[in-house]
Design a protein around this nucleic acid. Structure first.
Length: 292
DNA sequence: AGTAGAACCTGAGCGC
DNA sequence: TGCGCTCAGGTTCTAC
């Protein structure tokens, strides 16, 4: 489910409820998600004040007042919702659309402001960890992670440098979190279509010369554009993904290729059929006429 | 160096 | 109504 824009949307939705609040208690309803919870998870969180909430790549980072960071990854199907003490009839409170209430609600943070932050994750590919702020950068999760696509580091020169000499397809290189951190299957497909670049092209060929190229600069720019537009739209709502207040993101209405196999390419004057291929075990959608 | 495949899970959608 | 199959936003491992 969540790529960078979805995690950013979740972060912005949770921040008003979480930042400044004290964690009065935590319900941890199972022993593990993708990984076991860290030792003494509940005890280490209880009584802590949340000083900030941020996103890095696809991770949510909650800064606690004891110098640790609560790290959260949503996997494929994780989502948060905010519940107030007034209950489900309160405007803005997410009511799960189907299934028995509470199914797949694995963690609940009870906050001093009366709200409960509920983590739901049917497939349980998400995980949570507690890491000292001072050593976050050296932690295996973050050491060697790639550049932030919405930060200042992403430009044509950076892409050229990162992809130089790589024989892997552009699609695989863009999905590699060690190079650029935060892109997922949807936004890679969309970005490559906008940049008119084939997902099958060798990554090293976007910039045959050192120091960048118009092609690399264009790719960097469309990645930023696509991500920023998706964040502005509140993310995509594939299947059961929703924002923290239960409303649907609507960026999926602007997909140009993703999940459009067999439908016409939307580039003006093209009209070729969008194709689906499999790369690195993932579906790739693209227009073989427009993307070279 | 790359890639294919499998693994971790549940649920939706489809053909029959 | 239900069975069996494929697919799904992520990541990480093994085996060629």
């Amino acid at each position: 489910m969540p790529e960078l824009p979805e995690v950013e949307t979740v972060c912005r939705g949770l921040a008003p409820a979480m930042v400044g609040a004290v964690i009065d208690g935590v319900e941890r309803r199972r022993e593990n998600l993708r990984f076991p919870f860290p030792d003494n998870f509940v005890a280490r969180l209880s009584g802590r004040r949340i000083e900030g909430l941020a996103r890095r790549a696809k991770y949510l980072l909650a800064d606690l007042d004891d110098g640790t960071v609560l790290v959260m990854h949503l996997g494929m199907s994780g989502s948060f919702r905010i519940e107030t003490s007034e209950g489900a009839s309160t405007p803005g409170v997410f009511v799960h659309p189907r299934g028995p209430a509470g199914t797949h609600d694995h963690v609940v943070f009870h906050l001093s402001n009366g709200t409960a932050i509920v983590y739901n994750d049917p497939r349980r590919f998400g995980f949570m960890d507690l890491i000292p702020r001072a050593s976050l950068g050296e932690h295996p999760l973050f050491a060697g992670i790639g550049i932030e696509p919405l930060g200042n580091e992403l430009n044509g020169e950076a892409l050229s440098r990162l992809f130089a000499g790589k024989a892997a397809p552009l699609k695989a290189a863009l999905l590699d979190q060690r190079l650029v951190a935060g892109l997922g299957n949807i936004y890679v497909c969309e970005s490559l279509h906008r940049a008119h670049l084939s997902p099958r092209r060798k990554a090293g060929t976007i910039s045959p010369k050192k120091g960048g190229s118009p092609r690399a600069a264009l790719l960097a720019q469309v990645i930023r554009d696509v991500l920023e537009e998706a964040v502005a739209a509140g993310g995509s709502s594939l299947r059961d993904h929703r924002q923290t207040d239960g409303t649907l993101g609507y960026f999926q209405h602007t997909f140009r290729v993703y999940d459009r196999e067999g439908e016409p390419c939307l580039n003006p004057g093209c009209g070729s059929i969008v194709r689906r291929i499999v790369q690195s075990g993932r579906s790739t959608f693209y227009c073989s006429t427009c993307q070279k």
